[in-house]
Write a protein that binds this DNA or RNA. Structure first.
Lengths: 355, 355
DNA sequence: CTAGGTCCAGCAATCGATTGCATCGGTCGC
DNA sequence: GCGACCGATGCAATCGATTGCTGGACCTAG
């Protein structure tokens, strides 16, 4: 159907001009009548007339034109490092469930942990006038975030934070989470506990490691450097590799606190490869309590993070920022709880002596 | 900083006019010089001059303005029913990995299996001039898809299809997949096999059920209606409920073919609740081989779907459609293979007699 | 020497909505 | 009875890029 078709008028999306014409008013008046914020500038009857015509024609504002004019978009960018990590989908849901009902859209993007891809995505979204970002990709050193913050782009970090101070964020209370896990292990009789630490360029990795050390001290246990191994990334493979190093190093321990669930899974692999059993030989605790982690074998004892709430709170925080930009940045720390499952057991005194 | 700040010129994103001015040409010329498709209309030197100025100013085209004018957007919509289902993230990745390198963006959205939310999202995306859709939400009866198709919106369905014929799609070869799974069970000695069927308003649910019946016939086994139970949705809860009905009905069977992995997990739950063991008492086969399903207990034997490839192929198909809209719709069916794991075992002749 | 053609670049309209300012009729207060 | 004000609406510029058309410069062929 050629654009010059006589039926064109019927096919084309109605524009504001069509509505205005139908209602016998100027487009400006129609615009004001349709917009709740400016409706009061237009007489009662005109508003009704315009509304009726708009409904009859099935008029919907063209967001592209509006966005060009207003430099806004009623949408925000939601950037996650890796959608395949089960941690993130629930966060996405939380964000969406808060934003969608009030007419905001969340544009989801995956960076694949690639800063270049992240920069490109953020740039593309900014060019499309997104009004702010929820970022789940923060590193301790994160030039892009510094730059966005400096440019006063509304921003909320989730899960992880950057080294810079005052970017609003919603994060789990990692310190308490580690403390919970450690108390659990100590109560089971473990004294020599190892830590599979996460990447040390991420706040979560650093914070959990620090909290691990602190917990050891709090329980009067020795802080043995050989029981701490750092993994390059939050993945099962890296976890297996790290746990392998730990096991092969000859370090003595009866339990492992893994920096997150994927590392814990990797730890399972390393144990199995060496014919060690969990929890009989080594207890393992994870972090995040990602979906389905209660179904692995053995079911992983893990620190539960309120993933959905993190997303929801982040969305609310961002909306606050959008509504009143001058406001002092606020961060939220959400409480955690420990889910005890089959991967942790009391330490076997016999084995304990042997190892 | 007020918008009238003297530094405004430095702060503001450079526009095409700025570039044109800097290069001493008209904006139209700058536009043509910058656009590869129209570059040939401009003299060599002018192109170079404009390029240089654009680079110096850090000019980037405003996609909103361009989109308003051209009614295109270099982006497509990617609609999934439920991001929390681990099946979908790999598909998303596949789509992104094909589109991003060629300058297309994928706007991801989650419908939460809600047709209203889906319609709203699709409408919002169309209003933003997305050039096409990859839909993972197809139902057999799907008015929205019919409507999009009728409006000649470029469309590719993934994973599921609609009842209407000629919408291009990329789907797994469900029939062969079921055949593989069934042959495996038969080879293990199973003769009485039950099916936890998926929703019958989805092509996957229907196709797999039909293939299940066919496989029974092919192996000369009885098609016993009491061994077929339908689940309302693809979820663990629905699977547990369905398997519960199956187990409590008194139907006799030694193996269950679950319509997908989540149903299989639910089946595990129902078995555990009744103190039945898998695979000793009942073998279970899943479908999709979602991430981590090899880690559950027992590791699930499942039909592997090339999830990433489904996404990638869908993106390629959509690009083809965009490049030459007249073309006849083409669909792709991807081959599957069976991953045999711990949830299936030879049927125990003793138990077989007993049940 | 001129008609016709090619190449290059500018002009101006356009996409669709928003918004500061002007206008106009009418009311109110003095 | 007149200026001030107010409420309602229209006018026109604007956001930033694209593109059909026009026209000038220059070349070539007849």
């Amino acid at each position: 159907m050629a654009p010059s078709s006589p039926y064109n008028a019927l096919v084309r999306r109605p524009t504001l001009r069509d509505v205005a014409e139908g209602a016998g008013v100027h487009a400006a008046t129609a615009s004001r009548a349709l917009n709740p914020a400016t409706r009061h500038l237009v007489s009662r009857e005109t508003v009704q007339r315009v509304d009726r015509v708009a409904a009859a024609l099935g008029y919907r504002v063209n967001p592209v034109a509006r966005s060009l004019k207003t430099a806004r978009s009623a949408s925000i960018g939601l950037i996650v490092p890796d959608l395949m990590n089960p941690l993130f989908p629930p966060i996405v849901r939380g964000v969406e469930d808060v934003l969608l009902p009030i007419g905001y859209n969340a544009w989801i993007a995956n960076t694949d942990n690639d800063p270049a891809r992240e920069a490109a995505t953020v740039e593309a979204m900014r060019a499309r006038n997104v009004e702010g970002f929820v970022l789940a990709t923060a590193r301790l050193e994160h030039p892009l975030i510094d730059q966005l913050d400096a440019a006063d782009v509304p921003l909320v970090l989730v899960n992880r934070r950057t080294g810079r101070a005052d970017v609003p964020s919603v994060t789990p209370d990692d310190v308490s989470g580690v403390a919970l896990a450690m108390r659990h292990l100590v109560e089971l009789g473990h004294r020599r506990i190892a830590h599979l630490a996460g990447p040390q360029d991420l706040s979560t990795g650093v914070t959990r490691l620090r909290a691990f050390r602190q917990a050891l001290e709090d329980h009067g246990l020795e802080v043995a450097p050989e029981r701490i191994v750092t993994c390059k990334e939050w993945s099962q493979v890296a976890g297996a590799e790290g746990a392998g190093r730990l096991l092969d190093s000859g370090a003595e321990f009866t339990a492992v606190l893994a920096g997150n669930d994927l590392l814990a899974l990797g730890c399972y692999d390393a144990l199995a490869q060496r014919n060690l059993r969990c929890p009989e030989d080594v207890s393992v605790v994870g972090f995040n309590d990602i979906p389905f982690i209660d179904r692995v074998s053995p079911p992983l004892t893990s620190v539960r993070i309120p993933q959905y709430d993190i997303g929801a709170e982040a969305a609310r925080l961002l909306l606050e920022e959008l509504r009143d930009p001058g406001r002092h940045p606020r961060s939220i720390i959400l409480p955690l709880k420990l889910c005890v499952r089959g991967s942790t057991a009391t330490v076997d005194p016999h084995r304990e002596r042997r190892r």
